[in-house]
Design a protein around this nucleic acid. Structure first.
Length: 956
RNA sequence: GCUCGGGUGGCGGAAUUGGUAUACGCGCCAGACUUAAAAUCUGUUGGCCGCAAGGCCGUGUGGGUUCGAUUCCCACCCCGAGCACCA
């Protein structure tokens, strides 16, 4: 028996495979027939850092490798390529820090990554490798940009954008994390600089809608939906009038709650709102009486960082605009105007109507600044039924001063705990509340105030057996004295008095609806943000919110609109290491596209590439490169000096793999049709709202201009869970817990490494590395080695007790399960069933065929050792192109099955019966079983349930 | 706060349409081999009570549906992720 020498075996086969071009993908002649047997398996290509790979990085690559090998064995024409993404900030910052030119550093890092990947034994077709920094690649990145430019989807802008003071460049919204630069953690500023922006918002609707059809993890889909942030609402104009007699103007607001328009008691503008800017400038003195105060407030809020500005916990601030007012278009009432920085400038119209009664933020502001609160929606709880008995009630909130507890009653007959609730006659809610509290509890009280508006409840009154509608007004009352007066005997028998703290009350109150008044009092808020029925809203009173939105919008001449949170993609970086934006600024013709024949616009090779920090790219200083001729008028012109963001190259790389050497176009349409779309895409969750949105956007654009044939690039997406360090923390140099795959592979072998990473746990779940646990995988590999080599040595006639024929069912089951598990990424259970099979095989005499099947099933996971043993078995061709084993679906169940016998659902015994045993026979046998009979002794059997082949349950 | 995931032995984790909970692996314990150790092999291993036979309890908590619930329904608690003053 040969010793298992992983290093020798792995080197040998990696060399062989490369030599024989085993994994080279070829296009098939006929697109139509090729299409249904193709499989495009894609990894998110790495961004090669100077650190090299740690053991966590290859997890996804191993998974796609297993999957693609499996698919190849199933006869699919597999495309499984790999490449490198290397433009952008991280590479440039690394280069600056280490004083190596980025182009040199990147090539060095790529080389190191490739070496590390190669020893793991992947089946990549390296002849298709792409490198986003190669000018032959970025020629096409630039080409796509030009198409966007030509379609008007790339535009120049000077709006304030996110600026990272440390990286010295503008950033897209997607590049921020909690208002900080995602790369370096610096707090970003708002800075107006000239920049190129892509109109991704034009695609917002399609990007959102098409999410539904994707076979992606729910969490990623949800992240994208959140990020796009669609909301339907109304745009409504408010007339503005001037105290000094100026000409009235109007300001549009965006709202999703037009149904609350009658409750709009102020108009609020963001500090950046154009109207505010105009009203406070030199030319419009006299419009605002407090112009200076407003100007100062605006200046102050512009100084705040994004984080300070959008901190939800912070108290709201603002300034009233004196000397002007707005007119509520529904009520025609004059309402005050404020400027406040809780209103964001770049969402909706930058102005909102303030409805304190039905919006949490407005309520906070209104309370502080004394804006009136007007309730216009009555919340509805429960569902409306026909023939309801209607009651108008009050519910009383009574607090005792001495210990702060609240008064409740317990209904002795039903066990209900509730506040005092009583019917209203012709009196006011206050009078009714005082009367009811006294009658039911004997306490004298004084009503202080109503707690918000009425609430509406629909419920089934159990005690009276009727459906009931209740309109309830919560009222707060003060105790006149803390001693209760005598109650009638009748009341004493009916109701028990309880004094409860707020927390106790929340727990004990038996009907959730009865907590409303108490909550309004304790939390000191009467805000109702739910939909309901309109009240106090003129002719719209009585309508439900959903209906009223549209009708009120129409009534005031507004329109229904859709808004998105998604912002256009800030696409230029004031940095060196990126694709030059292929545009030319001509003194006469303006912005002109570089002619396609002149692409690529190569990044000039320079010594000094540090960012300038002025808002200009370092390229601007290279006059030889910058100064050029206008392609149209041949006059003096300058090149655009901004470069593209890191995400440009990765937004379309999956297309280039289909046709990596094409000099004439992005991709040959025939090849595109054969391979598109990507069938399976694997990578980390960190790309949820950047790469995966950008790539979808570009893909849809390319679809629109006829470059690609599908509307979505990636049909199925899987996220690998993170591998943490042995200490449970994220693997990082800082923690000293990084495990290097090269070391692991040198000691234990690539096959062990691969099997372990797939066996660790569910693929999509994060998990800590454990070298100890990995040894279990090594043992498994060694046991397979031993089983196969001893079988070969003994000429496949090892004598053991038993007979390999007994394994037939297990083999069929395992073949089925391993195939299914790989198909849906259940690698851990696939390996577990292979272990079960091995355990069984070790105990009996196995045939050459069976040994072969074991190796084939294991081949995608452990490609080297299975190849070695496969060839030792006498096979001439590679195991990796051998057809995947088939199973016999008639032989998935043993001839004899164990049926458990339960009595009243508890397992009391088991019987062995033939597979298709007659139900009555099984039931009879079950009762005769000695263990079971014991429990049945002297009992009356009520019922027997039989689940074929599984369980007999006897009910006694 | 909203949304999406997820809570199962000492640990990683398995469990078809509701049908023997803890497969497989790690660790632990015991045994074999060895002068010894490592490696390997064999066996045990959810908790409680019991000498034992055996019994009871057990999938975050509390209810419910069912002959039977890790699985379905309701309420709640905890952990992870995304979004968050988006009107």
């Amino acid at each position: 028996m040969k010793q298992y020498d992983h290093t020798k075996i792995e080197k040998k086969w990696q060399k062989q495979w490369a030599k024989k071009k085993l994994y080279k993908t070829v296009e098939q002649k006929s697109v139509d027939t090729a299409k249904d047997k193709k499989c495009y398996v894609l990894d998110m290509f790495p961004y090669p850092s100077g650190e090299g790979l740690h053991v966590g990085h290859p997890k996804g690559y191993i998974a796609t490798d297993v999957y693609s090998r499996f698919k190849r064995m199933q006869g699919f024409n597999v495309l499984h390529p790999m490449g490198f993404d290397a433009f952008g900030l991280p590479a440039e910052n690394y280069a600056i820090k280490n004083k190596i030119h980025p182009s040199v550093a990147v090539q060095k890092n790529i080389k190191r990554y490739k070496e590390q990947l190669e020893i793991i034994g992947f089946d990549y077709d390296w002849s298709r490798e792409v490198d986003t920094t190669d000018s032959e690649y970025y020629r096409w990145t630039q080409w796509i940009f030009l198409q966007l430019f030509k379609k008007g989807l790339a535009y120049e802008s000077n709006e304030p954008i996110n600026w990272c003071p440390s990286c010295k460049t503008g950033l897209a919204n997607e590049d921020l994390e909690d208002g900080k630069c995602e790369r370096c953690g610096s707090v970003v500023e708002k800075k107006p600089i000239r920049q190129w922006v892509l109109r991704i918002t034009d695609y917002a609707d399609r990007l959102l809608k098409d999410i539904d059809g994707l076979n992606w993890p729910e969490s990623i889909k949800e992240s994208q939906r959140n990020w796009i942030g669609r909301s339907e609402g109304s745009e409504i104009s408010f007339t503005v009038e001037f105290e000094n007699g100026g000409k009235p103007g109007s300001i549009p607001v965006f709202t999703t709650r037009a149904d609350t328009l009658f409750g709009a008691t102020a108009l609020v503008l963001s500090p950046e709102h154009l109207w505010v800017t105009l009203a406070t400038d030199e030319n419009h003195k006299g419009v605002l009486k407090n112009s200076e105060e407003v100007r100062q407030y605006v200046a102050l809020s512009k100084k705040k960082t994004e984080i300070e500005r959008t901190d939800t916990g912070k108290e709201k601030t603002g300034v009233k605009l004196e000397g002007v007012w707005a007119v509520n278009p529904a009520t025609k009432e004059k309402i005050p105007m404020y400027v406040a920085d809780y209103v964001l400038p770049d969402y909706g119209t930058g102005a909102v109507m303030m409805v304190p009664a039905h919006d949490e933020r407005d309520f906070q502001f209104a309370k502080k600044y004394g804006v009136p609160v007007k309730d216009v929606v009555r919340p509805v709880h429960g569902e409306i039924h026909d023939n309801e008995e209607v009651r108008k009630t009050i519910s009383a909130v009574v607090q005792r001063k001495s210990d702060g507890k609240f008064l409740f009653v317990k209904w002795k007959e039903f066990g209900w705990v509730a506040p005092v609730i009583g019917g209203m006659d012709s009196d006011t809610p206050e009078q009714a509340a005082e009367r009811e509290v006294f009658e039911e509890t004997g306490y004298k009280t004084k009503a202080i105030r109503r707690l918000g508006s009425e609430t509406e409840h629909h419920f089934y009154a159990d005690n009276k057996k009727v459906w009931r509608a209740r309109f309830d007004q919560p009222v707060y009352l003060e105790l006149i004295d803390e001693t209760a007066h005598l109650r009638t005997k009748e009341e004493e028998d009916r109701l028990e008095l309880l004094w409860l703290s707020y927390e106790e009350a929340l727990k004990q109150i038996t009907h959730a609806d009865n907590k409303i008044g108490l909550n309004r009092f304790v939390k000191d808020t009467t805000v109702v943000t739910d939909f309901g029925v309109l009240i106090d809203s003129g002719k719209f009173s009585g309508l439900i919110s959903e209906e009223a939105k549209k009708k009120i919008t129409e009534f005031v001449g507004g329109k229904m609109v859709v808004k998105y949170k998604l912002r256009d993609w800030v696409f230029s970086r004031q940095r060196y290491w990126g694709e030059p934006i292929p545009l030319i600024h001509c003194e006469r013709c303006g912005v002109v596209a570089v002619p396609e024949k002149d692409l690529p616009v190569k990044l000039p090779d320079v010594k000094s590439y540090e960012p300038t920090g002025t808002g200009e790219s370092p390229l601007a200083a290279i006059s030889k490169w910058v100064n050029t001729k206008c392609p149209q008028c041949k006059g003096k012109a300058k090149r655009e000096t901004n470069t593209m963001p890191q995400w440009a190259g990765s937004s379309w790389y999956y297309l280039r793999y289909m046709d990596p050497k094409n000099k004439k176009e992005v991709v040959d349409p025939k090849k595109e049709k054969q391979w598109s779309p990507v069938d399976l895409y694997v990578g980390g969750t960190e790309h949820a709202t950047r790469h995966l949105i950008y790539a979808r956007f570009w893909h849809k654009f390319l679809y629109d201009i006829g470059v690609v044939s599908t509307t979505e690039p990636f049909m199925q997406l899987k996220n690998q869970g993170l591998i943490m360090g042995e200490d449970g923390r994220k693997m990082s140099k800082r923690f000293g817990n990084v495990v290097n795959p090269d070391d692991v592979i040198a000691t234990y072998g690539a096959d062990t490494f691969r099997v372990y990473e797939m066996f660790m746990g569910p693929f999509e779940q994060g998990i800590a590395w454990s070298t100890q646990n990995m040894i279990g995988s090594r043992r498994f590999i060694e046991r397979v080695w031993k089983l196969v080599t001893t079988s070969i040595d003994a000429n496949l006639s090892r004598q053991k007790n038993g007979d390999s024929a007994n394994l037939e069912v297990l083999f069929n089951k395992t073949v089925k399960k391993v195939g299914e598990d790989i198909q849906d990424f259940g690698f851990n259970t696939a390996i577990s069933s292979l272990m079960i099979l091995l355990n069984a095989m070790e105990k009996v005499l196995v045939s050459k065929e069976q040994v072969g099947v074991l190796l084939q099933l294991l081949a995608p996971f452990a490609p080297h050792m299975t190849e070695e043993l496969w060839s030792a078995l006498g096979n001439k061709n590679s195991i990796h192109i051998a057809p995947w084993p088939a199973f016999d679906s008639t032989k998935l169940v043993e001839e004899k099955v164990t049926v458990i016998v339960q009595i009243n659902g508890k397992v009391r015994g088991q019987i062995v019966v033939v597979k298709d045993a007659n139900e009555d026979v099984v039931k009879k046998e079950a009762q005769e079983n000695a263990e079971v009979a014991k429990w049945l002794w002297g009992q009356q059997i009520k019922k027997i349930i039989y689940v074929p082949g599984r369980v007999v349950n006897i009910v006694i």
